[in-house]
């Protein structure tokens, strides 16, 4: 296996969470249900007392009247939807890939956010704690609170942040947006 492929797989493993817990829970539930039904069937076949109800009675109970049928259908539908959501959502972790010549670095989104905050603060001339950045899969939202009496040029900060994003070159690609608050604060 070539190293490039290995790097890709390793990066993917780091950036996505495992779904084995959900799979295990689902399998255990199915196995328990199957075991119970099997037991009842065997008991009925040898003519012994049923544990709870004989298979024939179970079927009759389940389809006896309309509301009960609908109820059972609804429960099954909800379980199915839960399973589908677990299976189809990305299971992504808040991380990005940064690829350099021979290595792939996995960076937590918090780290990216603090780097972008720093770039924005330096460009806007405000203390670091007056910048809040949140990074999601393909978006970075930067919010700058100016110092009262010192206007912040939104476009300059946006440019500084955009070039910081480009310089890092994280994958998946991040698009940044800079917002300057209307109200300022005065540093203590």
């Amino acid at each position: 296996m070539n190293t490039r492929r290995m790097r890709r797989i390793a990066a993917r493993r780091e950036r996505h969470s495992s779904r084995s817990t959900a799979v295990s829970v689902a399998l255990v539930l199915v196995a328990l249900g199957g075991a119970y039904l099997g037991t009842e069937c065997v008991l009925a076949a040898v003519g012994a007392q049923p544990l709870l109800a004989a298979p024939a009675d179970l079927v009759r109970l389940a389809v006896e009247d309309e509301p009960r049928r609908l109820g059972i259908a609804a429960v099954l539908a909800v379980l199915g939807i839960i399973a589908l959501v677990l299976a189809l959502t990305l299971g992504g972790r808040p991380r990005h890939r940064v690829e350099r010549e021979s290595v792939t670095v996995i960076v937590d989104d918090e780290v990216l956010a603090s780097g972008l905050s720093r770039a924005a603060a330096d460009s806007a001339g405000v203390p670091r704690q007056q910048v809040r950045t949140s990074v999601s899969r393909n978006r970075a939202a930067v919010r700058v609170t100016p110092v009262s009496g010192r206007a912040v040029a939104q476009s300059a900060v946006a440019q500084a942040v955009a070039s910081a994003v480009t310089a890092v070159g994280a994958r998946p690609v991040i698009r940044s947006r800079v917002q300057v608050a209307e109200e300022g604060v005065i540093p203590r």
Binding site: P146, S148, G149, A151, A181, E182, E183, G184, V185, I186
Partner: peptide
Amino acid sequence: QVSDSRGRLR
């Protein structure tokens, strides 16, 4: 005393 007035100084 100083405070903020919509981004400017009050």
